[in-house]
Simulated assay, not measured.
Amino acid sequence: MQRQEAGHSAVIPLRHRTLSGALLAAHLLLVGWLTLRPLDVPWAAAANLTPLEGIRAALEAGPVEAARRIGEGLALLAPLGVLLPLISGRITPSAPAAWSSLARTAAAGALVSVGIGMLQTAVPGRAVDIDSALLNTAGVVLAHLAVVPALRARRRRSRILSQGATPRITRVGLGPWTDVLSAVQREY
């Protein structure tokens, strides 16, 4: 049986944490390959440093193109929203810790996205797009909100089922030595 730590945190088994770490490494390698390989284009797009300008342009291009571009931006780093809390080793059920977990995960997703954007400046055919950082971070947050609460509930249910029924004690009386001990205390 696993020990319950302070703050009522459900500790994740080491094998799940190791698997999550391997999945995170594989995902980041895939993201690096998709976003940091050079493009063979005759021209390079200008950097987009105005927030929501690229999203607005995608919406003007039509609903199919907008769904594709926005969906790609949301999905690129979305697995980080689930894998990062799993790697940390805890899925905390209390409300304040849940919000701090979301904030840490969102900050890590934003840092990874901005880091990719900075690395893209050195890659031929790639340009920085602030909207991709916004969409990537939103994807991390949405994945965290969609999956992690369900994992918390499942973990709590499995812990309750594994502990079994709570023993019931019908009556607890005084111990047999209480009369002797109370007499000894009166003598001193």
Rank of each mutant, 00 (worst) to 15 (best):
residue 133 A to R: 00
residue 138 A to W: 00
residue 81 G to Q: 01
residue 51 P to L: 10
residue 4 Q to W: 05
residue 87 I to P: 03
residue 29 L to S: 12
residue 163 Q to D: 13
residue 96 P to D: 09
residue 65 E to D: 09
residue 138 A to F: 00
residue 152 R to G: 15
residue 14 L to V: 11
residue 126 R to T: 09
residue 167 P to D: 11
residue 164 G to R: 02
residue 72 E to S: 06
residue 25 A to D: 08
residue 90 R to A: 12
residue 137 T to H: 04
residue 155 R to C: 01
residue 106 A to R: 06
residue 58 A to D: 14
residue 49 L to Q: 06
residue 130 I to R: 00
residue 163 Q to V: 04
residue 41 V to Y: 02
residue 57 A to G: 05
residue 119 L to K: 00
residue 133 A to F: 00
residue 81 G to R: 04
residue 171 R to L: 11
residue 151 L to T: 05
residue 91 I to K: 01
residue 144 H to A: 03
residue 29 L to C: 13
residue 110 A to K: 05
residue 130 I to Y: 01
residue 146 A to Q: 08
residue 123 V to F: 03
residue 93 P to E: 12
residue 89 G to M: 06
residue 95 A to T: 13
residue 130 I to N: 01
residue 94 S to G: 09
residue 131 D to R: 02
residue 69 R to S: 15
residue 127 A to E: 02
residue 60 E to S: 15
residue 51 P to H: 12
residue 139 G to P: 01
residue 53 E to T: 07
residue 28 L to H: 05
residue 35 T to Q: 13
residue 67 A to S: 15
residue 69 R to L: 15
residue 82 V to P: 01
residue 65 E to T: 10
residue 60 E to T: 10
residue 112 V to G: 00
residue 63 P to C: 04
residue 58 A to G: 09
residue 161 L to Q: 11
residue 12 I to S: 01
residue 16 H to G: 05
residue 70 I to Y: 04
residue 74 L to I: 11
residue 87 I to H: 04
residue 111 L to N: 02
residue 159 R to M: 09
residue 21 G to Q: 08
residue 172 V to Y: 03
residue 99 W to I: 11
residue 92 T to Q: 14
residue 169 I to L: 13
residue 187 E to Q: 12
residue 129 D to S: 11
residue 166 T to N: 05
residue 108 A to Y: 04
residue 115 G to K: 02
residue 13 P to E: 13
residue 82 V to H: 00
residue 18 T to C: 07
residue 177 W to V: 08
residue 11 V to Q: 13
residue 91 I to W: 12
residue 29 L to W: 08
residue 180 V to I: 10
residue 35 T to M: 15
residue 103 A to K: 08
residue 123 V to N: 02
residue 43 W to S: 13
residue 98 A to L: 13
residue 81 G to C: 08
residue 134 L to E: 10
residue 23 L to C: 15
residue 33 W to K: 08
residue 182 S to D: 12
residue 165 A to E: 13
residue 6 A to Y: 04
residue 46 A to N: 07
residue 98 A to G: 14
residue 126 R to S: 08
residue 49 L to N: 09
residue 164 G to H: 05
residue 50 T to N: 12
residue 114 V to A: 14
residue 135 L to K: 00
residue 13 P to S: 13
residue 132 S to Y: 03
residue 167 P to Y: 06
residue 53 E to Y: 06
residue 161 L to H: 08
residue 162 S to G: 10
residue 32 G to T: 13
residue 185 Q to W: 10
residue 143 A to F: 05
residue 139 G to A: 11
residue 67 A to R: 06
residue 51 P to C: 09
residue 30 L to I: 04
residue 100 S to V: 11
residue 50 T to M: 12
residue 43 W to T: 14
residue 188 Y to H: 10
residue 167 P to S: 07
residue 15 R to A: 12
residue 26 A to G: 15
residue 51 P to I: 10
residue 162 S to W: 00
residue 166 T to C: 03
residue 73 G to C: 06
residue 124 P to R: 15
residue 117 G to K: 03
residue 171 R to A: 12
residue 39 L to V: 08
residue 20 S to T: 02
residue 185 Q to H: 09
residue 19 L to Q: 07
residue 173 G to E: 09
residue 39 L to E: 10
residue 117 G to N: 06
residue 96 P to S: 09
residue 134 L to R: 02
residue 21 G to W: 07
residue 109 G to Y: 00
residue 85 P to D: 03
residue 76 L to D: 00
residue 151 L to I: 09
residue 73 G to M: 04
residue 164 G to S: 05
residue 68 R to T: 11
residue 79 P to T: 14
residue 106 A to I: 01
